[in-house]
Simulated scan of single mutants.
Amino acid sequence: MNVLAFDIETVPDLAGGRRVYGLGELGDEDVARAMAARRRQETGREFPRIHLHRVVAISLAGVVGDRFRVWSLGEVDDAEPALLQRFFEGLERYVPDLVSWNGTGFDMPVLHHRALIHGISAPRYWETGDSDRSFRFNNYLNRYHDRHTDLMDVLASFQPRAAAPLDEVATLCGLPGKMGMSGASVAEAVDRGEIEAVRNYCETDVLNTYLLYLRFQHFRGVLDADGYERETRKVADALAATDRTHLRSFLEAWRGA
Rank of each mutant, 00 (worst) to 15 (best):
R18M: 07
R215T: 06
F250L: 03
I50V: 15
L60R: 03
A122Y: 12
L251N: 01
S72M: 06
L175I: 06
I120H: 07
L239W: 01
H246Y: 14
L98G: 01
T232G: 03
E127N: 06
L91A: 08
L214V: 00
P12Q: 05
F216V: 08
D150Q: 04
Y94M: 08
E229S: 14
A170P: 03
P96C: 12
I50M: 15
S100W: 02
A184C: 07
A187W: 03
N2Y: 06
G90N: 00
F135G: 01
D28K: 00
R124S: 05
K234F: 06
D66T: 09
T104P: 04
I195V: 09
G17E: 02
H113Q: 13
G183M: 04
D226E: 14
R199T: 03
D130C: 10
G105C: 02
E252N: 06
M152F: 04
R49I: 08
R244K: 15
S131G: 13
R39P: 09
E188W: 09
M108C: 08
L166T: 04
R54N: 07
E196F: 07
F137T: 10
Y94L: 13
F250K: 02
F219Y: 14
R248S: 08
R161W: 14
W254S: 01
S157R: 13
F6R: 01
N200M: 04
G16I: 02
G24C: 09
W101A: 01
G174V: 09
D146G: 14
E25L: 13
W71V: 11
G44V: 10
Q41K: 15
R124L: 14
A257L: 12
R49D: 05
D30G: 07
A253Q: 12
E80N: 03
E92N: 12
P12T: 06
I50D: 08
S185F: 06
R124D: 09
F68Q: 02
V99D: 00
K178W: 03
D243I: 02
G105P: 04
M1Q: 08
P96W: 03
H218A: 15
E194P: 01
E92Y: 06
T149A: 10
A156P: 00
Y94F: 11
G74I: 03
Y210D: 00
Y213E: 00
A122E: 11
F88M: 05
T245S: 13
A197R: 10
D130L: 14
M108P: 01
R143G: 13
M1L: 10
M1A: 10
L172V: 06
D243E: 15
V11L: 08
R215L: 11
R40C: 14
N138V: 05
Y125G: 03
L4D: 00
E9W: 05
D150S: 05
A253S: 14
P96D: 10
A187S: 05
G105T: 08
D243Y: 11
H145K: 12
F250Y: 15
D66F: 04
G65Y: 09
